[in-house]
């Protein structure tokens, strides 16, 4: 059986300019390409979902941003 090497991460941030840039800076500093990205706004909140290598969160401090791996 093939191991899953990517995870989908979810972050809920404030709906305002600059929140995506904070995340992309972190990913870029870590040299991480994403293989999927989705943003949806709901009122004053914004949901950012992205697909990245499974160990991104642990290795590169993504958890500090509130990003959580998700099966959903």
């Amino acid at each position: 059986m093939q191991r899953t090497t990517e995870a989908r991460y979810n972050i809920v941030v404030k709906n305002r300019p600059g929140e995506l840039a904070k995340l992309t800076k972190l990913l870029s500093d870590a040299g991480m390409n994403v293989s999927g990205l989705r943003i949806a706004n709901l009122g004053d909140k914004s949901s950012i979902q992205f697909v990245a290598p499974k160990d991104t969160g642990r290795k590169h401090g993504l958890r500090r941003t509130g990003a959580k791996p998700s099966l959903g």
Partner: peptide, 28 residues
């Protein structure tokens, strides 16, 4: 191009100009 620096350049440029993203999806 699907490179992390291109994505960050895009996000930073929009943020610097105060442009808010209402929705986005991507397909690699």
């Amino acid at each position: 191009p699907n490179h992390h620096w291109e994505l960050h350049k895009l996000a930073k440029t929009l943020a610097t100009e105060g442009i808010n993203i209402l929705s986005l999806y991507s397909q690699v």
